[in-house]
Computed example of a mutant assay.
Amino acid sequence: MQKCAIVTGAARGIGLATAKQFLEQGYVVSAVDRDEAELEKALGELGEGAIGLPYDISFPEKAEAMVTDTLASFGRIDALVNNAGVADFGPVEDTDFARWRRVMETNLDGVFLCSQAATPALRETKGAILNIASISGLRASTLRVAYGTSKAAVIHLTQQQAAELGEYGIRANCVCPGPVRTKLAMAVHTQDIIDAYHDAIPLNRYGTEEELANVITFLCSDKASYVTGQIVAVDGGFQSTGVGLPALRK
């Protein structure tokens, strides 16, 4: 039976690149995204071996349905990539509770719910959980009071998962992307921000979705069989030089 990966937030960006790499490596894939129209487009790119589940994983019943439907289609779960996230930035003073909850319910609650729902199946396969956080969860930056806090919580949640689920053979790791050249990032980053990032990143460029997917799929693979509880910044060295660009400030 082929190995199976679930990837949330799979309709675009890092999630889509990761789903493609899993398929290339011989996995079958459950591609999960609440944006049904974009998910349909993504399935056209993914082709055979992938199913689309148009679920909002911030709801417990949808996380459970994601697992139930995956097992019904593929019979097993070997990797869960918790990639779905909301990037909603704003100053501390302008972040009302509605914005705070909108970010937390997907970025943090969704990771918790999906991981919990998938744990029984992952116990059967001695599988892997891979959570996507951010360098904004490692170090504070401007306009990220909700986003950065949610990602910092994901980092700690990963270590909790590693500590408690290791006895079942389940590994849990976390990837913290730095600036990535996604369509969304390029649409919202001004030239000043792009230039500032290039100046601040030792490798002097944005990462690519494929470079993130390389690390994600590696950490889910048997080649990383003794790696768990690790927080890996995939950021061109950005964390080593600090976060908080003047161009991002008001």
Rank of each mutant, 00 (worst) to 15 (best):
G237E: 12
Q159G: 01
R99I: 02
K223S: 15
H189R: 12
R123F: 07
Y226I: 14
C220V: 11
L113W: 01
L113K: 00
S73N: 12
L245G: 02
L219E: 08
M186C: 12
E36N: 13
D78E: 06
F59Q: 15
E164R: 05
R205K: 14
A185I: 13
A31T: 05
V243H: 13
G237S: 03
S141E: 11
E64T: 08
I129T: 02
L46S: 08
D109A: 06
A79K: 09
G148M: 01
V32W: 00
Q116N: 12
G229C: 07
T68R: 15
E24W: 12
T149K: 03
A19N: 10
Y27N: 00
Q21C: 05
V227K: 00
E164V: 13
V154W: 04
N131Q: 11
L165F: 11
A5D: 11
S30F: 02
K183S: 08
H156R: 14
K250M: 14
A233L: 14
F74C: 08
T241C: 11
P54A: 02
L46Y: 02
F74M: 05
A117Y: 03
V243P: 01
V232M: 10
Y147W: 01
E40L: 13
P179E: 04
G49A: 04
I77V: 12
S240C: 10
S221T: 14
